[in-house]
Amino acid sequence: MKKLLGLVFLTLLLTSATGPTSPKLQSAPSIEGTWELVSFNNYDGNNITTVPATEGYRQIKMYYNGKVMWTRYVPKDSVEWFGYGSYSTTDSTLTERLEYMSESMRKIANDSMVWTMKLDLKPDRYSQIFTDGDGNPINSENYKRLN
């Protein structure tokens, strides 16, 4: 009986040490999912100004199976903003390659239609940070996970 209780105790101990709550087994957060823009950051040297999205403004991004799609709704603007393409990430960067976009986006897009941004990714939020030629942050878009 003592051996059986000892075996049960050892099994419980090993299961709890290696279960899904163990930090060693938790996987890194994934950008896959649906996200909503909640604010912008503007960087000026050591100062950061956070500006919340205005009432009624919605920007949604979806990342699935290497594809990205986003849309923006601005209540007082009839101009359409949307895009579709592919994406890739590293632990610190997000690269989007747009293949299709609204006319308004095409007017301001760069020639390559590729954007590489610094990525700050947490399980329920992420920021895509635009930098200057020296790697200094200029501004960011900050998102919360919807799913």
Rank of each mutant, 00 (worst) to 15 (best):
K3Y: 13
G6E: 07
G6V: 06
L7T: 11
L7E: 03
L7H: 03
V8E: 02
F9S: 06
L12C: 14
L12M: 07
T15L: 12
A17Q: 15
G19N: 04
G19Q: 09
T21F: 12
S22R: 02
K24F: 15
L25C: 08
L25I: 12
L25V: 15
Q26A: 08
Q26R: 07
S27R: 13
A28P: 09
A28W: 10
S30Q: 08
S30R: 04
S30H: 03
W35P: 04
E36V: 09
V38P: 04
F40L: 03
N42E: 08
Y43Q: 09
G45P: 06
G45Y: 04
I48C: 09
T49I: 13
T50H: 02
V51T: 11
P52C: 07
P52G: 02
A53I: 06
E55K: 11
E55T: 15
Y57K: 11
Y63H: 01
N65H: 11
G66C: 04
G66R: 06
K67P: 09
K67H: 13
K67Q: 14
W70V: 00
W70Q: 04
T71C: 01
V74P: 07
K76S: 14
K76T: 13
W81M: 11
G83H: 10
G83N: 05
S92L: 06
T93L: 08
T95L: 05
T95G: 03
R97W: 10
L98R: 08
E99S: 13
E99A: 09
M101R: 03
S102W: 01
S102Y: 13
I108A: 04
A109D: 07
D111N: 15
S112F: 02
S112P: 01
M113E: 14
W115F: 15
K118A: 14
L119P: 06
L119M: 01
D120N: 12
D120W: 04
K122D: 01
P123S: 05
P123Q: 02
Y126K: 00
Q128N: 12
Q128V: 08
I129Y: 08
F130N: 10
F130C: 11
F130D: 10
T131R: 13
T131P: 10
D132M: 01
G133D: 14
G135S: 02
N136P: 11
S140I: 04
S140D: 09
N142F: 01
N142S: 09
R145E: 04
R145Q: 08
